[in-house]
Design a protein around this nucleic acid. Structure first.
Length: 596
RNA sequence: GGCCCUGUAGUUCAAUGGAUAGAAUAGAAGUUUCCUAAACUUUAGAUCCAGGUUCGAUUCCUGGCAGGGCCA
């Protein structure tokens, strides 16, 4: 930011002039002043005591006096121990604010020329999405938006895991117990219908295992020998051989699942530029394994299985292709990586995948490097922790998962209940009310899941998490709705708001200055969030901005202000807050309402 | 057994190596003749343990302890 840069420059000059200490301005870091002290920026003097030959307070005092004298931006200063707190002239803040008003693209970085692919969601086709997927989807979408704001060309992709033994389990159960049921006949969403058969398979399978165990078979043995498992494996084999009946069933059931997923994606507001299917990439993966053998970077064990030795990279040996020639997870990932790069030559490829795959991605990257694929350098695993419930871990087979569709519906119901209780829907048509509930529900849910550092495990307490007060999505949305009301009123009163309408303002109330400080910080926040792939940085920013505005709103009246210039300024300030709230929430995939 | 991640108020989360460790919720006390009280103000409450590096450590390093994950 220019203001900070100018101050750093001045400090650099002052250090030279006063103490003959030479430090480049770029090395001079300013931090925001803690709110219990006067000032906006703080310079820490401790590191310069040796070079300057003076104590930290002396340096601070001398620097402060010099800056106040020579630097037009600095109004005043105070020194606390080794901390020099600098107060900035109101005129400087106002100048920044006027710039901001002119620049509707504020926060959007110039085109970087870099291509970034973001893969997220990546569901299995045998069961519906659950709470964990929601964290994934929201993260992926938000990171993609943040990277766009950083000037990168972004492509969002979804890799669908549509093959393997788990799919066959649903198919087998359907064949045996389905009686020709369809989403239409059952009234079930396609993904839920298929998921139902996955659960049915597991139940019947467990019964078989228990029965075998009761007959005296070893439990592990029983798991392998249970007839249903053998049938599922047989089905997978048939699928790989292209058996018409199996493939047709697979296609039918997948199409149900995709229709269900599409509905969910639309409902939660995420989308993709392109889909990949593992059924279409695994053969390419096998080719890459063959290539590795020829290049002698992979090797065959006695039984014919192909391995790669990653001891040099600090990893173990890793199986790439089974002895019977069937592929494992990483086989298809090798193929997918290549296909992705061919479609969209990227500088960076972000994989939003749960942290249980940390090791897997290290192996994938190292293996691709062994193959000499330079694009492997750009692979970044955006790893996130599990979402826990108060009752413990989610396990799909035990029915302790929180289904995504159900959760969203519950949030919508809660939003309706809260809104009605507060009596806030006067003048809404039923459609508008419905839309508002949806906006609030998803705002609450997305904000809740995104405000936490991705790599941390987090706890989702269904009762407590559905809170619309405090540090929540609706809190930020509420701020926007309030401002919208002000802007509507200003419009009705015919008040014009442009830079000229408050041209003579040169003094700021403390809360006004704090709001401006937050506003102008937006580009730096976007940059940081982009560098760290961290939507939580944006979420915290939106919250701080909303809080600063609420403080201002509470302390200062807008329409009772008799000075027209002051009134116009406050309306303009409000409008800019609304714009920045909408932008930052937009980066998180969260909509903001005009009224609530 | 090896490797990786995480340990902060009662609880859920913050804190580029900087000041008296911030919020939110739950607790206590206030603020509606005035632009939306889903708000605002005040109050009480925490860095897993032991060393080390540093003017300064929640942050970096070493060794424990606890929780989770991955690889066999």
């Amino acid at each position: 930011m220019q203001l900070q840069h100018a101050i750093s420059q001045s400090i650099s000059q002052a250090l030279q002039a006063l103490f003959n200490v030479s430090v480049d301005a770029s090395q001079i870091a300013l931090q925001p002043t803690r709110k219990e002290f006067a000032g906006s920026f703080t310079f820490v003097t401790f590191p310069y005591t040796k070079q300057a030959g003076k104590g930290p307070e002396q340096i601070g005092q001398a620097l402060g006096e010099y800056l106040k004298e020579h630097t037009k931006e600095i109004r005043d200063f105070n020194v606390v121990k080794g901390f020099l707190n600098l107060e900035v002239e109101d005129a400087e803040w106002l100048a920044l604010f006027r710039d901001l008003m002119q620049n509707s693209d504020f926060g959007q970085a110039e085109a970087s020329g870099r291509n970034v692919m973001v893969e997220y969601s990546s569901p299995n086709t045998n069961k519906p999405l659950h709470l964990g997927h929601l964290r994934n989807n929201f993260l992926g979408y938000a990171v993609a938006e943040i990277l766009k704001a950083n000037g990168h060309q972004v492509m969002k992709v979804n890799l669908v895991n549509d093959r393997g033994i788990h799919i066959c389990k649903s198919m087998l159960a359907y064949e045996k117990m389905g009686n020709g049921e369809t989403p239409e006949s059952s009234g079930l969403k396609g993904d839920h219908l298929v998921g139902k058969y996955y659960v049915l398979f597991d139940k019947a399978y467990k019964e078989q295992v228990d029965e075998l165990a009761a007959q005296g078979m070893d439990k592990e043995e029983a798991k392998k020998k249970a007839p249903l498992m053998l049938e599922a494996q047989e089905m997978l084999l048939k699928w790989e051989q292209g058996d018409e009946q199996v493939v047709n069933l697979w296609k039918t059931m997948n199409s149900w699942v995709y229709a269900g997923f599409d509905q969910t994606y639309r409902n939660i507001g995420v989308d993709f530029d392109k889909y990949y299917y593992e059924s279409e990439t695994y053969t390419l993966g096998k080719e890459r394994v063959e290539e590795g053998l020829q290049k002698e970077v992979f090797f065959k064990k006695e039984n014919g299985a192909v391995w790669v030795d990653l001891a040099e990279e600090g990893l173990d040996e890793k199986l790439l292709l089974r002895a019977d020639g069937t592929s494992v997870y990483i086989t298809q990932d090798l193929g997918t990586a290549e296909l992705k790069y061919n479609d969209f030559p990227y500088d960076q490829s972000v994989y939003v995948v749960a942290d249980e795959q940390n090791y897997h991605f290290q192996v994938l990257k190292a293996t691709l490097k062994k193959l000499g694929k330079t694009y492997a350098e750009g692979i970044y695993h955006l790893s996130y922790g599990m979402v826990d419930l108060p009752s413990g871990k989610m396990k799909s087979r035990e029915g302790t998962v929180v289904d995504a569709d159900e959760l969203v519906q519950e949030m919508i119901d809660t939003a309706r209940q809260q809104t009605e209780e507060l009596g806030k829907i006067e003048g809404f048509t039923p459609e508008q009310a419905q839309e508002l509930y949806h906006t609030l529900a998803l705002g609450a849910l997305k904000y809740f899941l995104l405000k936490v550092d991705p790599k941390k495990r987090m706890l989702f307490n269904p009762q407590e998490s559905i809170d619309f007060r405090g540090n929540t999505g609706p809190f930020v949305q509420y701020t926007h709705a309030r401002i919208s009301a002000i802007l509507r009123k200003a419009g009705e009163m015919g008040i014009k708001v442009d830079a000229a309408s408050f041209g003579s303002i040169d003094k700021l109330h403390e809360t006004e200055q704090e709001v401006i400080t937050q506003l102008v910080n937006f580009p730096a926040v976007v940059k940081e969030a982009g560098n760290l792939y961290a939507p939580s940085v944006i979420a915290n920013y939106a919250y701080e901005l909303a809080k600063a505005y609420n403080r201002f709103y509470q302390e200062i009246s807008i329409f009772n202000e008799t000075d027209e210039q002051a009134r116009s300024f406050r309306i303009a300030l409000s409008a800019m807050v609304a714009r920045m709230v909408r932008k930052s929430m937009g980066l998180l995939g969260i909509a903001v309402p005009e009224r609530m």
